[in-house]
């Protein structure tokens, strides 16, 4: 089974390796090129949003986060070839679990640290108390 070409997976509905897609060389190049163009557009959009001062100041971080998350989606779809097809279920489920943990770690840390920060005695007062 080991030496069998992975492209034969297509006939059955068995699982596909993450990052594999069943395409010809030409359509493969097409997919990477579309991905590159979209990624360049979004990256350029991010740098533009910061430097052009066109977007209302407080909205810029939100625009950056939206652009970053959509660019990650572009990379996952066009470079890592993740799809919603049944042969990708395991890959998507693992990714979803990873995203959940990332979300808990990042948001949880920021939330807890912000609360601790609010309850801290300001540094200059702390210095006076120690005197």
């Amino acid at each position: 089974m080991d030496v069998v070409d992975h492209h034969q997976n297509q006939e059955t509905t068995g699982d596909i390796a993450p990052g594999d897609n069943n395409t010809t060389l030409l359509s493969g190049i097409q997919s990477y090129t579309i991905g590159l163009l979209l990624a360049v557009l979004m990256t350029a959009g991010s740098f533009w949003a910061v430097q052009a001062h066109v977007i209302w100041g407080p909205a810029v971080p939100i625009a950056l986060i939206v652009l970053a998350i959509s660019q990650m989606g572009v990379h996952l779809a066009f470079f890592l070839h993740l799809t919603s097809a049944p042969d990708n279920t395991n890959n998507i489920l693992a990714l979803a679990f990873g995203i959940l943990i990332v979300f808990l770690v990042v948001v949880g840390s920021l939330w807890i640290m912000a609360h601790l920060d609010n309850r801290m005695v300001p540094m200059d007062q702390l210095m006076q108390m120690q005197r």
Binding site: D2, T13, A17
Partner: peptide
């Protein structure tokens, strides 16, 4: 392959996963 009675998936899929 890799489902129910289909036996294990091919090694490329298992290693990559």
């Amino acid at each position: 392959a890799g489902h129910g009675s289909g036996g294990p998936a091919n090694t490329r899929t298992v290693v990559s996963y």
